[in-house]
Design a protein around this nucleic acid. Structure first.
Lengths: 203, 203
DNA sequence: ATGAATAGTGAATCATTATTCATTATAACA
DNA sequence: TGTTATAATGAATAATGATTCACTATTCAT
């Protein structure tokens, strides 16, 4: 009895990441993914039930990994909330720096599949955000973060800003070097949420 | 000699906004837009050369209007940069509050058509952003805004955060009431960019 | 070494929809 | 009021591309 080739499954996924990033989910062709993966068109369907399943697995893996990493940060007592926040930013930047195609897919396709409730995409994404939120909550409780900001709004604010900056980066990597983005993001976030004298002056 | 009916052209555009927002550009059907506009499928093509042209006009109108409004703000001397920034936020929120479908289209579709250089979408969008940037620049020059933040990055940061918050609102209008969003956005932006003592302490 | 059992194939199928076009209806003008 | 140019129509077309499936190749247990 033959068995399905795990490497081939991975090759298809990798090809999917590349093609979806280059062409966008809707215009991406299964035939192209198959070619890039070095398999026949029909073989794709041995490993994934359909086109959507491929991108869903891609997104699930992304958020699963990030959610895990952040979860490990939460309970560390050797780090301040600010440091934890910075580490999260670093981890996210690291993943996308290592795999720019993944960044493009996140920016362009993630939302629609989360919306339609495909697979565990939303659940894993929420787990990631919830963990981040918990860290912010800790900072507020300890009077390190400004309590005037609605946490639910703040978490989306950060993600949105991050997603858009990433989008700019994918469009113009020279003009928006990831490292500069990373530093600026940290700076803006901190000075937007840190407790400081002036914050009170401006209602 | 008969002439093309301007109202019909507008009805098609309005139907387009509604259908593109509900179904997304790719899955939106011309037949559905026609039905909603109260014309025959083929009639669409009397007014627009193809499907893409419809959404392009939608996006062009949006940015043209906003760019105009912001341009008028720039040179007003009776307003502080902070006030100008707040007015821009108000104007944008006003447009999207009045037309939620437009907000959804901006959030989900704008990027891809800007990317492919469709029509004047990118030019008008850039004009809008450039005007915003000019106001920020004024604030920095007058030492009201923090100079540590890269303006190019900041402008995308704001737009991204805004876009994402809007996305949350379209998904859950109760949980993210636009007015709360508006106030929080103003607060976070100001305390992230305003010149204040604590900002220097954090590198 | 043999033969199930399943992997792998890619051409053919099938469904989907944007667009066209032959035809009819109507508004504007003489 | 008749003529005509063009608007309006919607069924037919044409293109596209995901998915299927009849067939071949390969693996592995015996």
């Amino acid at each position: 009895m033959r068995t399905l080739d795990l490497n081939k499954r991975k090759a298809i996924l990798q090809a999917g990441i590349s093609v979806f990033a280059d062409d966008g989910y809707h215009t991406a062709k299964i035939a192209k993914i198959a070619e890039l993966a070095g398999v026949a068109t029909g073989s794709i369907y041995r490993y994934y039930p359909n086109k959507e399943a491929i991108i869903v697995v891609i997104l699930e893996q992304l958020w699963e990994q990030l959610a895990d990493e952040v979860r490990q940060l939460i309970h560390r007592t050797d780090l301040q909330p600010v440091e934890k926040l910075e580490l999260i930013i670093d981890q996210v930047f690291d993943i996308f720096t290592a795999n720019p195609s993944l960044a493009i897919i996140f920016v362009n396709e993630h939302h629609q599949f989360m919306m339609k409730g495909a697979g565990r995409v939303k659940a894993l994404y929420d787990a990631f955000l919830d963990s981040c939120e918990q860290i912010v909550r800790e900072g507020v409780a300890r009077h390190i973060f400004n309590a005037n900001v609605d946490i639910k709004i703040f978490r989306h604010y950060i993600i949105g800003a991050f997603r858009h900056l990433l989008q700019q980066w994918t469009m113009d990597p020279e003009g928006f070097p990831l490292n500069k983005l990373r530093q600026n993001l940290k700076f803006i976030i901190k000075n937007g949420i840190m407790q400081h004298a002036a914050a009170h002056a401006h209602r």
